Simulated assay, not measured.
Amino acid sequence: MAPYACDPALSRGRRYPQAPAPTRTEYQRDRDRIVHSSAFRRLVYKTQVFLNHEGDLFRTRLTHSLEVAQLGRSIARSLQLNEDLVEAIALAHDVGHTPFGHAGQDALNDCMADFGGFEHNLQSLRIVDHLEERYPEFDGLNLSFETREGILKHCARRHAEQLELQEPGGVGQRFLQHQQPSLEAQLCNLADEIAYNAHDIDDGVRSGLLTLDQLQAVPLFDQFRVQTLADHPQLAESHQGRRLLYEAIRRMLSSQVYDVIAATQSALNAAQPQDVQAVRNLAPLVQFGAEMRDESKALKAFLLQHLYRHPQVADTMGQAQVVVRELFSAYMNVPGEMAERYQHRISHTGVEDAALPADPQARTARVVADYIAGMTDRFALHEHERITGQRLLT
């Protein structure tokens, strides 16, 4: 590994000290804990763009996380970064996402407006720090500092200040000091963007909401469609549309990966960081080249207008937000409707106190948010139907 890569032997450690594993590095151990967690398994039934029941082949939060991990490891290998840390961060980066994708997150954030709001990155950290219940000695997964830092991609200042009070010098500090995370964390951020742009094109076309003709307006994609047809003219036939789409996406992904490697290596050569701490004190180093950055922004703008804001998607997500809001209201009014262990957390006065507000109403709201955020799409729908008698999004 390069000197600016995270070395597991030099990890800043875990919140609860543990003896090293005999056959695994600290980051390999983190990855394994994440894979075996309940929150990770639930990602298979959480929406990316299309609800789980809308089709068997659409991406879910789980398959998205696997794709991010694959892209991240490929780039990390070329840049001599720590692949295991990249994989651990990638697999855990979305475990705090609500059911129903960003629509569910927005609805839950609105519900929590008077109680500190809701951020899915912060929720991911809450899960690995507090909410997983797998070990007798501590709450959470007790991951290494470097993995936790990478999971917390964004954080509002008020939340960073709260984290700093609970853990001085911990994962909230960099947001207060305007520092960068490790290169491995920076890489996961960009691999996330590369992955969802590519697979949202695929899912958009599969759903019928996007067409290959529409995508000709996107330079980043269309150059590879044209290139593919030049190399394989037979794919111009109508029944070959799927092969044409896959090959164009594959080439687009490869081009983005090579661009990130080249642009990042150039930035590293110019900055010459000697260690991880030097990386933290510099501007972000993992990056696209200028042309690729502009083309990627244009692709995101296209997907926002033509896919994420498509009337069919908007209608579905509007109903999903009703589910989240009505569940929140129901549980706030009658906490006994929640699973027993969540009811217990509202009145519990033990080790979880640092993770929950002291004010009773705020405490109840945070526990309700934890419960809803942990739901899969289908469990949320079943709960909503059980409580309200309404069947939505069938």
Rank of each mutant, 00 (worst) to 15 (best):
D56R: 13
I75R: 08
E133R: 13
S124M: 12
R157V: 09
E149W: 10
G140H: 02
F145A: 01
D94V: 06
L81V: 08
G101E: 03
D139I: 08
T63P: 04
L71F: 15
E119N: 11
G140Y: 06
R77A: 07
P136W: 00
R134Y: 11
N121D: 15
E149Q: 13
G55I: 11
L71A: 14
A156K: 12
F100T: 01
N82V: 00
L131H: 02
L143M: 12
E54F: 11
M112K: 02
G116Y: 11
F118T: 06
D129R: 14
F138A: 12
H120A: 13
H154R: 14
M112V: 03
E137C: 09
D110E: 14
H53F: 07
Q70K: 15
H154Q: 15
V86R: 02
F58S: 11
A92W: 02
L66M: 10
R73M: 02
H64I: 03
N142G: 12
C155M: 14
H64Q: 04
L141C: 02
N82Q: 00
I127H: 07
S124Y: 12
G55M: 12
V95T: 01
L57G: 07
A107M: 06
E87M: 04
I127S: 02
Q80Y: 13
R59E: 10
S65G: 00
R73D: 04
E137S: 10
I127D: 04
L62D: 09
E132M: 04
M112E: 03
L62M: 08
L91N: 05
G140A: 03
E149F: 12
T63I: 03
E87D: 06
H130G: 08
T147V: 09
L81M: 06
A156P: 06
D56E: 12
E67Q: 15
I127T: 07
T60A: 05
R148C: 07
P99W: 00
M112T: 02
